[in-house]
Amino acid sequence: MKAFTQHRGLVGPMDRANVDTDMIIPKQFLKSIKRSGFGPNLFDELRYLDEGQPGADCSNRPLNPDFPLNFPRYTGASILLARKNFGCGSSREHAPWAIEDFGFNAIIAPSYADIFYNNCFKNGLLPVILTEEQVDILFKEMEAEEGYQLSIDLPAQTVTTDSGHVFAFEIDEFRKECLLQGLDEIGLTLKEADAIKQYEDARAAQHPWVFGAIK
């Protein structure tokens, strides 16, 4: 997995609450059996004026001129600024895949849906949680200044603005470590193979019906 330590980049907005994963990547793109290539279809229904089809070339599709991420000033954005309960709805990991594939390295929002939040970490994408007031300040600064950039420091757990704000954020120790080192979680868990086997033996003795039923 891709590691994340520090990042400085252009900020792009998604200014609505409760953005669901259907909005992030509509279902027709879930038919893919690949993990990559979802970026052109990120926010597909909002971003384009026509209906997107899987496998179709997006470069000639009509863009929605009113959708902020289509504004030239946000081209190349790598930090997504969003509102509360971001990523609610279905568990599709295609949502963080699309966000990452589009070019974002981090998201900043007041809150996330649980499954989406969890999925981000598996893909080297840092979901930063700031307070609603702090997110408001960032939205205002971003709107006022073209080319607005932010600096995110994962080891220090801070978001820093050029205007001098330093906002601290919380993050789980385990998740932070995995991101910092780009660790393979499955590999880590397999180091505990003995503990898993031991658990299975004890459990099979106690609750035998849990084992061997499905053939």
């Binding site: 568990s91 599709r92 963080p96 499954i115 499955i186």
Partner: peptide, 21 residues
């Protein structure tokens, strides 16, 4: 019972466990 993402589907297939809090 709860939903998981695709990376976790792989994690469960490979280890029969999930990392959870």
């Amino acid at each position: 019972a709860h939903g998981i993402g695709t990376s976790e589907v792989e994690h469960v297939l490979a280890t029969q466990c999930l990392v959870a809090k």
